[in-house]
Computed example of a mutant assay.
Amino acid sequence: MKLDLDQHRKTGDQPADDFVNDYFLDQQKKLKLDLALKNLIKNSDWSSFILEIPEAAWFDKTFNDLNFIQPQIRTKALQFYNKKSAYILQLLGLLSLPYCYAAADGAKVLYQTERMYKDVAKRLEETGLFVAEMMNPKAFEAEGSGKIQLFKVRLMHAAARFYIQKGNWDMKLGLPVNQEDMAGTNLSFSLIVIRGLRKMGFVINQDEQMSYIKYWSWIGAMLGLNPTLLPQNGKEAHDLEIAINQRQFKASAEGTQLTQSLLKCFYSLNDEKQIKNVEIAGFMRFLLGNPVSNILDLPKANFPVSKQILLKLKVSVV
């Protein structure tokens, strides 16, 4: 893949941004949109939504112009997820989110949205629901909500760009929710999850890895990512991740605060039956590795070797 990450850092999602600017700058149109979105729950609601908000037809064009992911690729990705869903959903909070917090400039955007540290449990729930729906075999049927969720996430990103730029945002950091940051987030759901599963002891073959990465690249395309930022295999995903990591991963007050809020959320939700609260940071450090953990100022707690062994024994029989 040919990368121009400097340019991608200045770029958002033009169709979504134009739509948001059109509706958000007119209070009456925004109220109309808000009401229509509340009634947009399932894919079958889309036709009624378009009648009320015809300008949203740009998303239909995206959805139709970008061919649906090859059925065999999606089937393999969904089978992979189904076999490991409980672990994957855990990794979204323990690995994927803190991985994103290590990108300092992107973390500033997440911090400004406030919900990322003031309503962490809700954010975790929403992330889990989004992933679960993308992995639902019926997600894109009439009674599913796959198309609707993709549209709403894309709209949420455009809304963040709209509002954050109205503040005192420093454009030297790049456009808020830019292409590079969105690409890093997409990798956190695919390549980084696969790495986490392997760290836990799962054996994942190349066919499984390729299918999962390709499916998430298709999801990324639906969310407005540039084709050059959509890896089609493990090597392309690895190369993109390294390029973003080297450019963006560094310590920041926002990344540290987001991580501390995440830990506090885990402490409040954990029943301490399988893992003690004092071991959670150690488990995250085990998954993330020391370089990223140190960027996030994670406590230097150990994840006991005995539990690492038990974890690997447990997943070996899954």
Results as ranks from 00 to 15, higher is better:
residue 9 R to D: 14
residue 308 Q to P: 03
residue 107 A to V: 11
residue 178 N to D: 07
residue 54 P to E: 03
residue 14 Q to C: 00
residue 207 D to I: 11
residue 303 F to V: 00
residue 103 A to D: 15
residue 168 N to T: 04
residue 311 L to H: 01
residue 2 K to Y: 12
residue 151 F to I: 01
residue 193 V to G: 11
residue 79 Q to G: 12
residue 252 S to M: 07
residue 305 V to C: 06
residue 30 K to E: 11
residue 63 F to A: 13
residue 113 T to A: 08
residue 18 D to Q: 11
residue 172 K to V: 06
residue 118 K to G: 10
residue 186 N to W: 06
residue 167 G to H: 03
residue 124 L to N: 02
residue 158 A to L: 04
residue 37 L to C: 05
residue 248 Q to T: 04
residue 137 P to A: 08
residue 204 I to L: 14
residue 184 G to P: 13
residue 128 G to A: 05
residue 35 L to C: 03
residue 276 K to S: 14
residue 139 A to R: 08
residue 223 L to D: 00
residue 304 P to W: 00
residue 161 R to E: 05
residue 7 Q to S: 12
residue 262 L to Q: 13
residue 282 G to L: 12
residue 161 R to P: 09
residue 88 I to V: 06
residue 16 A to C: 00
residue 204 I to K: 09
residue 268 S to I: 03
residue 223 L to H: 01
residue 280 I to W: 02
residue 256 T to D: 13
residue 238 H to E: 14
residue 299 P to L: 06
residue 94 L to Y: 12
residue 307 K to D: 13
residue 192 I to D: 10
residue 109 V to L: 08
residue 31 L to E: 14
residue 164 I to H: 03
residue 242 I to P: 04
residue 116 M to F: 15
residue 84 K to P: 07
residue 180 E to H: 02
residue 174 G to W: 02
residue 146 G to A: 05
residue 51 L to S: 15
residue 92 L to Q: 07
residue 146 G to N: 01
residue 43 N to C: 03
residue 237 A to W: 02
residue 162 F to G: 11
residue 112 Q to C: 08
residue 52 E to L: 13
residue 121 A to R: 04
residue 95 L to P: 08
residue 71 P to K: 03
residue 251 A to W: 04
residue 69 I to F: 00
residue 17 D to I: 00
residue 85 S to L: 00
residue 56 A to I: 02
residue 258 L to H: 08
residue 317 V to N: 13
residue 32 K to R: 11
residue 81 Y to I: 07
residue 276 K to Q: 15
residue 220 G to I: 05
residue 108 K to P: 03
residue 161 R to A: 11
residue 6 D to L: 12
residue 115 R to Y: 13
residue 226 N to P: 05
residue 270 N to F: 10
residue 28 Q to A: 14
residue 199 K to M: 12
residue 115 R to L: 07
residue 183 A to Q: 09
residue 150 L to K: 07
residue 26 D to A: 13
residue 78 L to S: 03
residue 50 I to W: 05
residue 137 P to R: 09
residue 182 M to V: 01
residue 46 W to Q: 01
residue 236 E to I: 06
residue 201 G to P: 10
residue 163 Y to H: 15
residue 187 L to M: 10
residue 30 K to G: 00
residue 259 T to I: 06
residue 310 L to E: 14
residue 200 M to N: 09
residue 51 L to C: 12
residue 219 I to R: 00
residue 313 L to Y: 06
residue 300 K to G: 02
residue 308 Q to L: 00
residue 159 A to Y: 12
residue 29 K to E: 12
residue 221 A to R: 00
residue 67 N to G: 15
residue 203 V to A: 12
residue 314 K to T: 14
